[in-house]
Design a binder for these strands. Structure first.
Length: 291
DNA sequence: CTGACAACCTGACAGC
DNA sequence: TGCTGTCAGGTTGTCA
């Protein structure tokens, strides 16, 4: 599911509902949801129980909640680090409400509600990051996202142009700039009128920076609409779907008319998944041999 | 460094 | 009613 706008929508929901609450209990229904936690499910439970939940933070598609309270001397600065993978979601429900299918972990809160982690495919998960409240070491390899206070368009542009790769591949590379996934890469490329196979080295500095500016714009609009929902696999913490799906210009619109020029949107295979683009607005880069 | 690919998982859907 | 193959918002590790 989730790319930056969806994760940010979830973060906003958590900010309103769990900040300042204390975890009174942890129930791990499927240990695979915490398999990345060092020490296993038992240790995870011990590290989270009794902790005060801070203000949720995000970088790219990663989300973390600073953990306070209990024993500040030994546990100060820890964080509950989460990734939603392809199908993860958080829900806030009143205690005792029936659990939905695919519920993997339940955190009991001191306000009579529960923070529930659901994940159909289990590509996502949670772990406690020791000392990770500011920025978990586990995600130090992830580059800043376009909304990050530390995001530098000049640096990003330089790194993008230094790549000996193609544009969509580079946009999906989380170590360069994080948060962009398959949907927003395609939407960004359409808006910037660039073909996915454009060699990165061909971009001028201003053009490269412009690509990230476009990505930021597209994702900001998506956040305003609560992200993109195709089905019930992505919902907000209150169960509502996002509305950006109806604003998508190319993703999933194979055969439909380009909103700019009317040409038929095409789908092409790309890295074991799909790319959608307008064959008229997004010309194959000149001089690049076609496959 | 770059790319190709398998692995990690479940479920919906098309076609036979 | 099966069964098989395909596809799906992601990340990581291995091998060339």
């Amino acid at each position: 599911m989730p790319e930056l706008p969806e994760v940010e929508t979830v973060r906003l929901g958590l900010e309103r509902s769990v900040t300042g609450k204390v975890v009174t209990g942890v129930r791990i229904l499927d240990p695979r949801a915490v398999r990345r936690h060092d020490g296993g499910p038992q240790d995870f439970t011990g590290a989270v129980t009794g902790r005060l939940l801070g203000n949720p933070r995000r970088r790219g598609k990663y989300l973390w909640v600073p953990l306070g309270g209990v024993d500040p001397m030994s546990s100060a600065g820890d964080a509950l680090l989460c990734h939603l993978g392809m199908s993860g979601q958080f829900r806030i429900d009143d205690a005792g409400t029936p659990l939905l299918r695919h519920t993997r972990v339940v955190l009991d809160l001191d306000d009579g509600r529960e923070l529930r982690f659901l994940d159909q495919r289990l590509f996502g998960g949670m772990q406690v990051s020791r000392g990770g409240a500011l920025l978990p070491a586990e995600i130090s390899h992830i580059g800043p996202d376009p909304f990050d206070a530390g995001f530098d368009a000049v640096v990003a542009s330089r790194r993008l142009r230094a790549r000996r790769s193609t544009l969509k591949r580079a946009l999906l590379d989380q170590s360069l700039v994080s948060g962009i996934g398959n949907i927003y890469a395609d939407e960004t490329l359409w808006r910037a009128r660039r073909h996915p196979e454009t060699p990165t080295s061909r971009l001028r500095a201003v053009e490269a920076a412009g690509i990230y500016e476009t990505a930021r714009e597209v994702m900001a609009e998506a956040i305003d609409q609560g992200g993109t929902s195709f089905d019930r696999l992505y919902v907000r913490v209150n169960g509502e779907t996002g509305y950006f799906g109806r604003s998508l210009d190319v993703y999933g619109r194979e055969g439909a008319a380009c909103r700019r020029c009317g040409a038929g949107i095409v789908r092409m295979a790309f890295m074991n998944r799909s790319s959608y683009l307008c064959p008229r607005c997004q010309r194959w880069p000149r001089g690049v041999p076609r496959l």
